[in-house]
């Protein structure tokens, strides 16, 4: 299980990396944690002429709170984020999601930004970013731009980043007010990709839902927001009728795939189960934060 030949580049600055990338954007790939890329290379499921290892570039490993954002650098490891107190206090849904991702040996190397850019449809982090909102900061020789979460995930393993761009950090929005969250998933084993998962962020005003984002993952090419349910829940409280309606909206919105781990029927059914549970937990969390 050895990869096909490739050229290995180890730039020390982002400009060097961008220069190498600019020479052959389509035939190059960036290596950060390598926890998905390296197995794909070794299985020869992916072949690139140039592998650009960005691990020696300084200034990409940070966790910062900036006004209404949690900012995480492109080389910050998942383990460090999972065990960071600022993250735990200000964006607990992220800490919680990370507890479901892989095992320590993997999270010691794997990065948050790398997972977002890999855009596996069954991965947790793209769903968290979609639910809480935020943006990716990407850089190319032409300059820096940001891509909002809702515009970032195009399809399975495909994002809005151009081949000549490097993602340098992710900025998660930090919710204010009376807000709560929940994270639910079913996986075959601890640490596996989800068969189906749900991330919910909810804000309350005067005991009614003023804002809610319901994201289901593992059911489509990208994390799915259930916008019908979100709209209908605004101004509502949770009761049997509103929960049943939300579950019906979930079922109507999804046409999940079959695979060897679960059927489409399973995913659709359990997405509804998890949305019901997740809404109640997010409400409980919001109430306890009030």
């Amino acid at each position: 299980m050895k990869p096909a030949p490739f050229a290995y580049h180890v730039p020390n600055t982002i400009d060097e990396a961008l220069a190498i990338l600019g020479n052959d954007p389509d035939g190059s790939r960036l290596l950060a944690g390598g926890q998905s890329l390296v197995p794909m290379l070794n299985l020869r499921l992916a072949n690139f002429d140039n592998l650009i290892d960005i691990n020696h570039i300084s200034g990409l490993d940070h966790i910062r709170i900036e006004s209404d954002s949690l900012v995480i650098g492109a080389l910050t490891r998942q383990y460090d984020v999972a065990h960071n107190d600022d993250v735990r206090n200000r964006l607990p849904v992220l800490s919680n999601a990370l507890a479901h991702i892989a095992h320590t040996a993997i999270s010691n190397r794997g990065t948050i930004v790398g997972s977002l850019c890999h855009a596996d449809p069954a991965a947790e982090l793209p769903a968290v970013l979609t639910a809480v909102g935020g943006e990716l900061v990407v850089q190319s020789a032409a300059g820096t731009r940001t891509i909002r979460a809702n515009d970032f995930f195009n399809s399975s393993f495909t994002t809005a980043i151009n081949p000549n761009e490097v993602a340098t950090e992710v900025r998660f929005d930090l919710a204010g007010g009376t807000s709560g969250w929940s994270f639910e998933e079913v996986a075959r084993r601890h640490g596996d990709f989800a068969l189906v998962g749900v991330v919910i962020q909810m804000t309350l005003e005067k005991n009614a839902i003023s804002d809610v984002r319901i994201v289901v993952f593992g059911v489509a090419a990208t994390p799915q927001r259930i916008t019908d349910a979100e709209k209908r829940l605004i101004g509502q409280t949770l009761n049997d009728a509103t929960l049943d309606q939300a579950v019906a909206d979930v079922a109507a919105a999804l046409s999940p795939p079959d695979d060897i781990h679960a059927t489409a029927q399973y995913r659709r059914h359990v997405a509804g189960v998890l949305v019901r549970r997740g809404l109640l937990r997010a409400l409980e969390d919001a109430n306890s934060s009030a």
Binding site: L43, H103, R188, R189, H190, G191, D192, F193, I260
Partner: peptide, 28 residues
């Protein structure tokens, strides 16, 4: 609970990595 070597109707094996062939881990 987990392990199953699956072939499709064409006789192609579908469980060719530890992502798809699930062995119990110490966590379980």
């Amino acid at each position: 609970l987990l392990e199953h070597l699956i072939y499709d109707a064409d006789g192609q094996p579908l469980t060719t990595t530890y992502m798809d062939y699930l062995v119990p881990t110490a966590m379980g």
